[in-house]
Design a protein around this nucleic acid. Structure first.
Length: 570
RNA sequence: GGCCCCGUAGCUCAGCUGGAUAGAGCAACUGCCUUCUAAGCAGUAGGUCGUACGUUCGAAUCGUACCGGGGUCGCCA
């Protein structure tokens, strides 16, 4: 067992038995206390706040409980020293041999770790960019985030369906078709008049060139335009290693059968009525007319106004098709619906969630929405201006062609979703420490180089080493112990990243461990006895190279989960 | 104006969901290449965690109010 679970079990068992001795009816909560690696070394290898958490319930001062726990733990032969400090922290120092053994525990687990996941069937919807043009850099964030979250969830053992919802219906598609038709008619017209009626830019001109048969029916024309654009989108996604398991069409969601079904349900629950809406604040023109519409009573559920389900022309609103689409997911027995949206949809979250809440039992599903903040594109210090209206936005493919998929992927997930990202071309293309991807990859390459040198020097192969029984008693430097502790914490980081849908935890962890490795490597520059490979000492070299092996595996596995390459030479 | 998000070192961000003396990277200054990849390492300096109350043994973290920044408020998607 890793130290974390070992301590957690040992300490918690004690609390549990004390609870029953004292006849406390309440069941103690195992996840309410922490086992943490303190930043300050003097607070122990690990530290726990367990005494402060349970003291009150047990009618003891925290320090007294901590002392009792300390006495209890002191029986263990792997403990070097225990300290009760401050308000009741229990700081634990392990024997070095314990950590050496923990590294062996790591090798036992690396390829078959049990995350103890309660397996869920998850529908993860992401990207879902409108098929009206190429994806831009803003789309990349949601795309990479969604794909990486999927990868993490699968790593811990969930079943994930990656879904793309194609908005192939509605006003935007009408405008799209109109634009392409315009280009088909004005083939030789160099100067294209753009107005609000048409999409700007040359991209749709290119699309129109690919439509050979101009006598297509309206329906066929629309389908082939969307197909062409979706192909481009899929191609771009593939460039950044993203594929989806399923594509759901909005048009198909709004079949008559589906509409009738959902309306029936909504009406049964008395959630709709025919009524009027206020004039929207954002519309200043005179064209707005007050009309009677079928509305959803969202105001009763926290929304600021009731929302339209069916437009005055008889078509469905986006909201209505979205209800149908998401209800279908619940009907398909997904346990968790997870959506990745841009933060510009924040106002829409409550509306859709409350609609689903009205239609379903709470225990049947979980509906979570992650909103991603903006991406600023910088060139050096300058923000690259983008204007969608003029059609001069920077496309995803341009960026990928410049920087490659790895750096892009890392940058898009390396910070929490609700912080904006400054995507700086200068940094991202640099091959220095400024660029965290290179820094981590460089650590991996150095590890691999060390392994090669080790094998050559001692004329052996790492594969010959029995990793679960190797002698590691030479690993005694504080730098070595710190790395072992962090290595043993790897799976916890993955679990937390999965639990909170936060890939940046893994990115930060990998950077951190790369930093520790580089520091360790640097020791040998100053003090040759701290070199990893010492020609005259095969024992030390062997212990150290095994540590290096574990670091390289961690980096490789972590980067694999993030779908970022780790070259062996740089 | 309503709702959502953000405010931590000069800049960009972490901070393990309430713990101890708040951490990294960049930028600045100082050292380290005949020696395992200097694409690197070590060191110095830099903070009333936006402000004020409150909850708590204990707050950057939770609550309320205010200040500042961004997003959003359609029968668009």
């Amino acid at each position: 067992m890793f130290y974390h679970d070992l301590l957690k079990k040992e300490l918690f068992d004690y609390i549990n038995s004390e609870y029953s001795k004292k006849n406390i009816k309440e069941v103690p909560n195992k996840s309410s206390f922490n086992i943490e690696i303190p930043t300050n070394k003097k607070f122990g290898d690990v530290s726990t706040n367990i005494a402060m958490v349970f003291a009150k319930k047990m009618g003891l001062p925290p320090r007294d409980l901590a002392l009792k726990l300390s006495k209890h733990m002191n029986k263990e032969n792997f403990i070097e020293k225990l300290e009760v400090v401050g308000p009741g922290f229990l700081n634990i120092f392990f024997k070095k041999s314990f950590w050496q053994d923990q590294l062996k525990v790591y090798f036992k687990n690396i390829n078959s770790f049990d995350y103890c996941t309660v397996k869920k069937n998850i529908c993860l919807e992401f990207v879902s960019a409108n098929p009206t043009g190429l994806m831009h850099i803003g789309h990349a964030r949601g795309a990479v985030l969604g794909d990486t979250i999927a990868s993490i969830l699968e790593e811990v053992g969930h079943k994930v369906t990656k879904e793309y919802y194609i908005n192939d219906a509605g006003e935007q598609i009408k405008k799209l078709k109109k634009t392409v038709k315009f280009h088909l008619k004005n083939k030789n017209n160099k100067k294209i008049k753009t107005d609000d009626e048409l999409y700007p830019g040359d991209y749709l001109k290119e699309i129109s060139k690919k439509i050979h048969d101009q006598a297509l029916s309206e329906r066929m024309l629309e389908n082939s335009i969307i197909k062409l654009i979706m192909n481009d989108i899929k191609e771009d996604l593939l460039k950044i290693k993203i594929t989806h398991d399923s594509f759901i069409s909005e048009k198909q969601c709004s079949s008559k059968k589906n509409i009738d079904e959902i309306l029936k349900k909504l009406n049964q629950k008395k959630l709709t009525y025919y009524g009027y809406q206020e004039k929207p604040k954002s519309l200043n023109n005179e064209s707005w007319e007050r009309k009677k519409l079928l509305l959803f009573k969202s105001q009763e559920h926290g929304d600021e106004t009731d929302r339209a389900l069916i437009k005055s022309n008889g078509e469905l609103t986006y909201f209505m098709t979205d209800i149908i689409y998401h209800q279908k997911k619940v009907d398909k027995k997904f346990d968790i619906l997870l959506n990745i949206w841009g933060s510009d949809h924040s106002g829409y979250v409550k509306r859709l969630q409350s609609a689903l809440e009205q239609l379903n039992k709470k225990e049947n599903y979980l509906f979570e929405i992650k909103l991603t903040s903006l991406v600023n594109l910088l060139d050096g210090k300058q923000v690259v201006k983008m204007s969608k209206r003029e059609g001069n936005y920077v496309t995803l493919r341009e960026v990928v062609d410049k920087v490659g998929p790895d750096v892009l992927r890392y940058m898009m997930i390396s910070r929490s979703v609700d912080k904006k990202i400054d995507f700086d071309f200068e940094i991202v293309k640099s091959k220095t420490k400024d660029n965290p991807v290179f820094y981590i990859q460089y650590a991996y390459a150095r590890c691999m180089s060390l392994i090669t040198i080790y094998e050559k020097t001692f004329n052996t192969s790492l594969k010959k080493i029995d990793l679960e029984n190797v002698n590691l008693s030479n690993l005694i430097l504080s730098e070595e112990i710190i790395m072992i502790i962090k290595i043993c914490n790897f799976f916890n980081v993955i679990m937390k990243a999965a639990k909170f849908y936060e890939p940046h935890r893994i990115a930060n962890y990998l950077f951190d461990i790369a930093k520790d490795f580089h520091a360790y490597w640097g020791l040998g520059k100053v003090d040759s006895s701290k070199k990893i490979i010492i020609d005259q000492n095969s024992n030390i070299s062997c212990s150290r190279i095994v540590l290096i092996l574990s670091i390289s595996q961690i980096i490789k596995k972590g980067m694999n989960i993030l779908k970022i390459e780790c070259p062996e030479n740089m």
